[in-house]
Structures are given as C-alpha cells and as structure tokens.
C-alpha cells in the first residue's frame, strides 16, 4: 500500500509535527516503501488468531488504594520550560 503526500501531511498534523515540503516528499517515499514491505503480512491467515499486546501474561497489577508519597511539586516542575506560581505555563490556547 502506498501513502500519499496528503496522507503524510494529515498524519503529521495528527501527531503534532510540522513537516517541510521536502520532508513530506522524502517521508511519503520511504514510508511507502516500508508499508509496501509490511503488506506481506496479508499472506498470513490470521482467522481466529487472538492479538497479542503483551508477551508475558500478567493479571492486573493492583495495589491497595492508600495515598503514598509522590514527587513533590518543585521537583515535578524543575524541568518545565516555563512555570509560574507552582504551575506549568503554556502559550495562549485560543487565538
């Protein structure tokens, strides 16, 4: 299966990436090659085969619902590009 330039540009937007025209060209060609290769999976009959998302089956790893110490606020904020009054700061969301 091939991927068109429009599809690459659209998926890039979904992934919050801004690609140059040149990058869109290169990626659509390279990703097209990769997807064409991946198409060989269609040779495999998978009727009734359950999917695997995890190689080691574990049941849910529950813990007791008790409050525990967590990362303190200053540490959580120490790497923030911009912060104010104990909060993360972002550029304006609308407009």
């Amino acid at each position: 299966m091939n991927i068109t330039k429009d599809e690459v540009a659209y998926v890039a937007t979904l992934a919050r990436l801004e690609l140059s025209e040149k990058a869109i060209d290169t990626f659509s060609e390279q990703i097209g090659d990769i997807l064409a290769y991946v198409d060989k999976l269609n040779e495999v009959n998978t009727d009734g085969v359950p999917p695997t998302s995890h190689a080691i089956s574990l049941s849910n790893a529950f813990r007791e619902d008790k409050p525990v110490e967590h990362l303190d606020r200053d540490k959580a904020l120490q790497n923030a590009p911009e912060k104010e009054d104990g909060d993360f700061m972002v550029p304006k969301v609308v407009g």
Binding site: V38, L41, N42, V44, T46, V49, P50, P51, T52, S53, A55
Partner: peptide, 13 residues
C-alpha cells in the same frame, strides 16, 4: 496494520 501485526505476533510467539 496494528490489528494484523498483533495477530501475527501471536503466531510468532
């Protein structure tokens, strides 16, 4: 893609 690959993953296992 993801669904098919996850099924073939089962066969590989």
């Amino acid at each position: 893609y993801y669904g098919k690959a996850s099924q073939v993953r089962t066969l590989i296992m």
